[in-house]
Amino acid sequence: MINKVVANAKEATQGVESGMTMMFGGFGLCGIPENVIQAVVASGVNQLTCISNNAGVDDFGLGFMLQTKQIKKMIASYVGENDEFERQMLSGELEVDLIPQGSLAERCRAGGAGIPAFFTPAGFGTEVAEGKEVREYNGKPHILETALTADFAFVKAWKGDEAGNLVFKGTARNFNPMMAMAGKTTVAEVEELVPAGELDPNEIHTPGIFVQRIFKGETFEKRIEQRTVRAKQ
């Protein structure tokens, strides 16, 4: 067993530098690495390229790193919940590359799987296809999308063991497994950190080979973005 455990978010983010490319798992605020985000904010690095499906909200998630202007470029599929983001984008302070959600997921997966590029029908005939090779397969046009990798991938899991094996809960899985694969250094923060051997190998979602550092998150707020309920009958 190769032990990947580090003490905390600060230790887990050793080596982050200005100008790096970083992936952040999560969908909306669900399954985001809350503790690492605070550590990256505290580190003061800037000029970052961040890859994440969303950009947080004004006062949570990647929104913190927008407030501190640490992000130079954002690669995402949907950024509609964040006024500061919109302001920085429309004023030209922030570079933004919006890409279809399925292409974003597959580009991360491909990056981790050693596939440099692939053809997809998503985005053909739209702004997304500008400058991209088009090829027809089965009578249908497809565009060439390239793989994404990152200096650091930051993911969040429910449970993890000392070997870096991860189990996710509910829809908090989302982009985390693919980003774990695509990071040169992948850091996992977990709610429960257990000794090797405690997780059932049949039920592990992300094998520890994709994870270089793991730690138990200090605190998890797990903020809900849209609280929708129904009345009890």
Partner: peptide, 25 residues
Amino acid sequence: EDADLINAGKQTITNLPGAVYFDSA
């Protein structure tokens, strides 16, 4: 409500018998 169980509109939801969770890819 469970913060780890939402739909694509980021609304809290529930699952039905036979439900399954998976990654974005």
